[in-house]
Simulated scan of single mutants.
Amino acid sequence: MAHTKINVTLVGAGGKMGYRLTNNLKNDPNYETSYLEVSEVGIQRMAELDVHPTKAEECVPKADIVIYAVPDIAIGKVTEQYVPMMKVGAIGMFLDPAAPLAGHLAHRPDISYFAAHPCHPSVFNWEPTEKAHFDYFGGIAAKQSIVCALIQGPASHYETGEDLAKVIYGPVTKSIRVTIEQMGILEPALSETFCGAMISLIKEGADVAVQKGVPKEAVYEFLKGHINIELALLFDQLPGGKFSDAAIKAIEIGKQKIFKEGWQEIFEPESIKSQIQAITK
């Protein structure tokens, strides 16, 4: 008996993220995928993969799943155009929690909404090949975990969405279920607003050390090595390992000098809402 494929439409198939998804979907035996792209640059990228765009009216109405691989600022306009074309019972899939949490999704109680986001390959990954080792973003060769959330729809659609997420972000080693609100805590609050700011400050600190006359090579090598061991100590990669007493004292001095009291408020719902509004305008 012939295998029934799931019909997928990928919106933004030639974009920076869409191109990665197109590459992972185009030969998957479980999905029959159509591709939507409006930019000439995107269409040229797709041609490199021997994939060509389809007209929306030909593919969206028959799709079981429509993936919206478009920038956050465009989600509202794009879903306003395509969600009304989706068939009853279809799934609208999003790659980021920002637009759903900002209320930018078109109202359709008769379809499902699902979100999945990559964790990106861990700094603690061991990869056997050079291609995988240098796949920092993920979705090509390096292993990574993902987080998934069913925003609305029947429980069975979680598994359907998760199965597709494992393909578009593959190779996936672990899929973790969260709510869309928890995904908003992870991104933008934790990964960008907090961690992105922290890592940017680390780079600024390195720049200061170079300005003080320390050779740049020494600064970078010293810092990258210390980042590695300090992450390993803090994230349970070295059982029983801990900072020295001197390092603990230095860390406390640094915290008092660098951080404002009450920084934890960036994880509160109102703060997350304002962060999302800022990045989706």
Results as ranks from 00 to 15, higher is better:
residue 126 W to K: 15
residue 181 E to S: 03
residue 143 K to F: 05
residue 49 L to Y: 06
residue 92 G to I: 02
residue 6 I to V: 15
residue 241 G to L: 12
residue 197 A to D: 09
residue 58 E to H: 06
residue 62 K to D: 13
residue 231 L to A: 13
residue 73 I to L: 07
residue 69 A to C: 08
residue 160 T to D: 15
residue 279 I to G: 00
residue 206 A to Y: 01
residue 28 D to R: 13
residue 205 G to R: 04
residue 163 D to F: 14
residue 176 I to H: 12
residue 270 E to Y: 08
residue 157 H to T: 02
residue 281 K to R: 11
residue 82 Y to S: 10
residue 273 K to Q: 13
residue 34 S to P: 05
residue 22 T to A: 12
residue 177 R to G: 11
residue 155 A to N: 09
residue 29 P to D: 13
residue 8 V to T: 10
residue 215 P to V: 06
residue 158 Y to I: 01
residue 84 P to Q: 11
residue 92 G to N: 10
residue 64 D to H: 08
residue 240 G to A: 08
residue 163 D to M: 11
residue 108 R to T: 06
residue 213 G to D: 04
residue 32 E to L: 13
residue 235 F to P: 14
residue 276 I to S: 04
residue 225 G to Q: 07
residue 37 E to G: 04
residue 262 G to E: 14
residue 128 P to D: 03
residue 42 G to I: 00
residue 56 A to E: 13
residue 128 P to T: 11
residue 280 T to K: 04
residue 224 K to Y: 04
residue 39 S to Y: 06
residue 45 R to N: 07
residue 5 K to D: 15
residue 239 P to Y: 07
residue 86 M to E: 02
residue 250 A to H: 10
residue 145 S to F: 01
residue 201 L to S: 14
residue 40 E to C: 04
residue 219 V to Y: 14
residue 151 I to G: 00
residue 56 A to Y: 03
residue 122 S to V: 00
residue 165 A to K: 07
residue 22 T to N: 12
residue 40 E to R: 05
residue 196 G to A: 12
residue 41 V to D: 04
residue 275 Q to P: 10
residue 152 Q to I: 01
residue 211 Q to F: 04
residue 177 R to N: 13
residue 67 I to Q: 03
residue 93 M to H: 01
residue 133 H to S: 05
residue 210 V to Q: 11
residue 200 S to C: 05
residue 86 M to N: 10
residue 147 V to W: 10
residue 48 E to M: 07
residue 49 L to K: 04
residue 141 A to F: 02
residue 142 A to K: 01
residue 180 I to A: 07
residue 207 D to E: 10
residue 156 S to V: 10
residue 276 I to P: 00
residue 169 Y to R: 03
residue 48 E to A: 07
residue 6 I to C: 11
residue 277 Q to I: 12
residue 88 V to H: 11
residue 166 K to N: 13
residue 53 P to W: 06
residue 204 E to V: 09
residue 260 K to P: 06
residue 137 F to T: 14
residue 93 M to A: 02
residue 26 K to I: 09
residue 257 K to P: 02
residue 74 A to W: 01
residue 4 T to H: 15
residue 40 E to Q: 09
residue 192 E to R: 09
residue 100 P to N: 10
